[in-house]
Design a protein around this nucleic acid. Structure first.
Lengths: 166, 166
DNA sequence: CCGTATCCATTCCGATACTG
DNA sequence: CAGTATCGGAATGGATACGG
């Protein structure tokens, strides 16, 4: 039996994962942000098998995250280039990167770093600002279901979240 | 043969995906942000099979994204609660959500919405600000490899990115 | 209610060989 | 170089039955 499809649910998080939530897609996209465009570049960088890479590239092209373009000086081959939809995944990769920097490395382990070209310094932290300009965290938000769309009155689910201290 | 492990690579994006990059983990975490804590709540919400849910919850506890706590009024059962590491995934879910809102829904399709409790309005857009206060996109950044850490001089890879117009 | 155990189909993925 | 084809092992995931 096939995996349950998340393509038509109302939650945007689920839809995103349905499109790019597999093990390889975001890594391919990361490499594309890093300037890679050719089959062999991806394959070498990722250590992925050719068959899987072919399948993933096809999928990413199909959902318009990547776009193929002919390589002019070479015989009939394609290169894979990010579309607008693909470039818009930038903040996704940044959020993952910053989370992992905080939680997935030992003190002494070295890691690659995202740098700002203009200043030559590290890219600042991502932050979600509320309407009042202060930073929002999850406890200050709630999800309104699509069905409640017409109900412009307030948050039934606010304050529901209970989490561990640490 | 097993899947290549990404647990020890130097790229934080890869490490993040190694820990939470499977099909279900971020959906479980999304539900946890939504206030769910019990096995049956997750199972019902996700339509996931019990065996897989068990495996995923165990994994998330093992990597300290979720934490178990006894349910006081009930016999010996556990509830699953986000840790700090888990709560810090908030921006990851927000970035995925906003991307999918932009690119994965038809004009007329309804979707759930992340709301700000205080104002009762939609959560603003996530944005990455550069040092100068202006918004950064991928073309204004580059990745410095760990090996280049001591080389504090500038960007060799800046401007390498080529993308499609659309 | 909260899982565990088992079964089975599908999918994933790496390895390799092959083609233009 | 850029794939395609095929193989086989491993993991995924749904369904169901069972136990505490």
């Amino acid at each position: 039996m096939k995996r349950t499809s998340l393509g038509r649910v109302e939650c945007p998080v689920a839809r995103a994962l349905d499109e790019i939530g597999d093990w390889w897609s975001l890594l391919i996209i990361r490499d594309a942000f890093d300037g890679m465009r050719r089959f062999s570049e991806f394959q070498k960088s990722l250590g992925i098998s050719k068959g899987i890479l072919t399948a993933r590239l096809k999928h990413l092209v199909a959902i318009d995250v990547l776009q193929t373009a002919p390589i002019s000086d070479e015989g009939g081959y394609q290169e894979y280039v990010l579309t607008k939809k693909g470039r818009d995944l930038f903040l996704v990769t940044v959020s993952l990167r910053q989370w992992a920097e905080d939680h997935c490395f030992g003190k002494t382990e070295r890691r690659s770093t995202l740098m700002e070209t203009a200043s030559g310094k590290r890219v600042p932290r991502l932050a979600l600002q509320g309407r009042d300009g202060k930073e929002l965290d999850s406890s200050m938000t709630f999800v309104r279901k699509a069905a409640d769309l017409d109900d412009s009155r307030a948050p039934r689910k606010a304050g529901v979240l209970r989490t561990a201290e640490r």
